[in-house]
């Protein structure tokens, strides 16, 4: 469902991605691991269409469509969801209002009926229960005054409501304590299906104890240097990233 070929991208004139190749099938969970500055988060943002990043080479097909040709909102409506590493605060804007507008834009795009306030609340309550989120959450402004953990949980909650085809989790585990991590992982696992695909970007192996990936990729210096099964993550945990870089350089 997602095919990345020789993707190069840069920000502020500096090349960060130096030829990424990646192929993900429907229903798979892929993990992207790598040391700080390896380009993991850049990959997530480039896929979502962040305007700061410039793609200089390569192509990305999403469900057979040219992803790079689409505006960020078109990508979102087509079913690509990015759970932000640093969710943005929008002061004064009601969480529920924001989410309802987002969901209905996507539903409209899919040719589905827009949900009215009642239907929306029914859906949202169910998702909140799954993610152990308090209802007061809904009436707070988007991410304003949220703790780091609440922000991350809000991202997964939004993802659970809009039900994307591809969920990209950008370091969702950072800043979460173990209980919150489990709740978030359970939320993601509950959404796993043959139609839904996940790309989990993480620095630590910890999250992958709970969200078991089908494939693990290791990214260093803007390239994927190793791919393997879930045991690769454990190996990394053990040995660190250093041992992977040497054979490539050598």
């Amino acid at each position: 469902m997602l095919k990345v070929r020789n993707l190069h991208a840069r920000v502020a004139g500096r090349e960060i991605l130096r030829g990424i190749d990646l192929s993900i099938q429907h229903g798979e969970v892929h993990a992207i691991m790598g040391p700080n500055g390896s380009g993991k988060s850049t990959l997530a943002r480039v896929l979502a269409g962040h305007p700061e990043y410039e793609v200089t080479e390569g192509e990305v097909l999403f469900e057979g469509e040219d992803l790079l040709d689409m505006d960020p909102e078109e990508r979102a409506r087509a079913g690509l969801f990015l759970a932000f590493q640093y969710p943005v605060e929008i002061p004064g804007l009601n969480n529920a209002y924001f989410l309802k507008a987002a969901l209905n834009t996507m539903r409209k795009h899919r040719g589905e009926e827009e949900l009215d306030a009642m239907e929306f609340m029914t859906l949202v309550r169910e998702r909140m229960k799954q993610l152990d989120i308090d209802e007061a959450f809904l009436n707070r402004p988007v991410n304003e005054g949220f703790s780091g953990g609440e922000k991350k949980r809000n991202e997964i909650f939004q993802m659970a409501v809009v039900e994307p085809k591809l969920g990209i989790l950008d370091e969702t585990d950072s800043g979460l304590d173990i209980d919150a991590l489990k709740i978030v992982a359970n939320g993601v696992n509950a959404m796993r299906s043959a139609e839904r695909t996940f790309l989990v970007v993480t620095h630590y192996q910890r999250l992958l104890n709970y969200i078991i990936p089908d494939v693990v990729h290791v990214l260093t210096d803007g390239r994927i240097v190793r791919s393997g099964g879930k045991e690769l993550a454990l190996e990394l945990e053990d040995k660190g990233y250093g041992w992977l870089e040497e054979p490539v350089r050598g």
Partner: peptide, 30 residues
């Protein structure tokens, strides 16, 4: 109005114009 705020809204499927309107209405809420 930050580029990051607008991008966040667009990543949730909203047009830039809707994003600005929402950010502004949040600002004026009181």
């Amino acid at each position: 109005i930050g580029e990051d705020q607008i991008f966040y809204c667009r990543q949730r499927g909203l047009s830039t114009e809707d994003a600005v309107n929402m950010i502004v209405s949040g600002f004026c809420k009181e």
